[in-house]
Design a protein around this nucleic acid. Structure first.
Lengths: 207, 207
DNA sequence: ACACAAAAGTGCGTCTCACGCAAAATTACT
DNA sequence: AGTAATTTTGCGTGAGACGCACTTTTGTGT
């Protein structure tokens, strides 16, 4: 029997590998062919795994695709926990977001591949996927709220404050990312993030 | 042929009726039996309609259930458009939310039915439904952003401001509703809404 | 009032899914 | 190496989503 506070181990490692492989396979195929032309069977094959195994990891195609998004979002919450207490809350949030976005060329940042870019845009505009993305955001926001509560000495269950900040920050980040994604002459993401978070902290004054 | 800018008409009315009937049927049955024990066939029967017709209105059980939530949320955006320009934006938002929540004993407000209350709570905690709820919120927020842009003379597509306000307000409302739903000794909703929106406008100061 | 066009409702068939269950394969611990 | 736990796999089932063609209802023009 394995104790809880244990190091990864070969088993956990393999598990994560297949999980990641499945998620990436789902994303790649969807970007190439469009969601409707991708069967679970195809994803499993791409990840060198039996079809049935897919549903051991994800309960739907959408969940598999959103999994990468979820992981990234969770890292932000995780990073927030590691920021020194000397930073103000907003500063810590901003830095946490930016550090996780920095090496995140996943969703078409620089100018990697025109085909990929447009494919990704098509993918995330798929209605059935949007629900999964939003679900992922909600989960990440919950963890973020917990981190904020911990940092500010408030209670997630009783106080509105941590959830409010997490929710507002999440919304702001979503808006920034959205703007960034549809900017035709590409723009850098940093100023956008700083802008939206700054406005939040300033009480959203009318422009 | 019917022109576009026409009044309801018997046809549109009937359509809305069946749509509403289907949505309510889905909610009632789900609250009673739980989502897994409700087949599309049952919902259709409850609404006096053929099974196939269900999918003419909704593409999933979840969508049917979230439809009522979506309608309510859209009304907030609609109300916001009707508020006089003399009110400040935040005031207008607050009033719009409260007026639409006022006659909304739908989701277990007062003390109508203990059975119903717990059933509703079980329903909204259903994972597959949460995605739909979030999707509904996103749609409503988009309309709200449009209303805000109109009101403040900004551009939804170019300026971050309207989407930012709509997103943050939506998140705040969600937090307030959440708190309100899980308050065991029931509390009034108004103070919660005023609280969260007030904090937003104040820049989310640490408590 | 009647007939015709448009739109909603219906029935059928099909193609995927999601998942329970139990057997095979793989991994970890002693 | 031996054994127990865990993961992977195969199979079967029940349900869902939706295209297509047909029937019924509704709205409009004569």
């Amino acid at each position: 029997m394995s104790r809880e506070g244990e190091r990864p181990g070969l088993r956990e490692r393999k598990k994560l590998e297949t999980r990641t492989a499945l998620s990436w396979a789902a994303i790649r195929l969807t970007v190439e062919r469009g969601l409707e032309n991708v069967r679970v069977e195809d994803i499993a094959a791409e990840a060198h795994v039996a079809p049935r195994t897919f549903n051991n990891y994800f309960s739907s195609k959408g969940e598999a695709i959103a999994a990468r998004h979820l992981d990234r979002a969770r890292l932000v919450a995780h990073e927030l926990r590691r920021r020194p207490a000397s930073e103000s809350l907003w500063e810590a949030i901003k830095i946490s977001v930016l550090t996780q976005l920095a090496f995140g060329e996943d969703y078409g940042a620089g100018q990697p591949d025109q085909q990929w870019q447009t494919g990704v845009r098509l993918m995330i505009s798929e209605p059935s996927l949007q629900g999964e993305m939003l679900k992922a955001n909600a989960i990440a926001e919950a963890e973020m709220a917990a981190a904020i509560a911990e940092r500010t000495g408030t209670d997630v269950a009783r106080d509105l404050y941590p959830r409010l900040v997490a929710g507002a920050a999440g919304a702001a980040i979503r808006v920034a990312m959205d703007q960034w994604l549809r900017a035709d002459p590409p723009v850098p993401i940093r100023p956008l993030i700083e802008d939206v978070l700054g406005r939040l902290a300033a009480g959203l004054p009318e422009p």
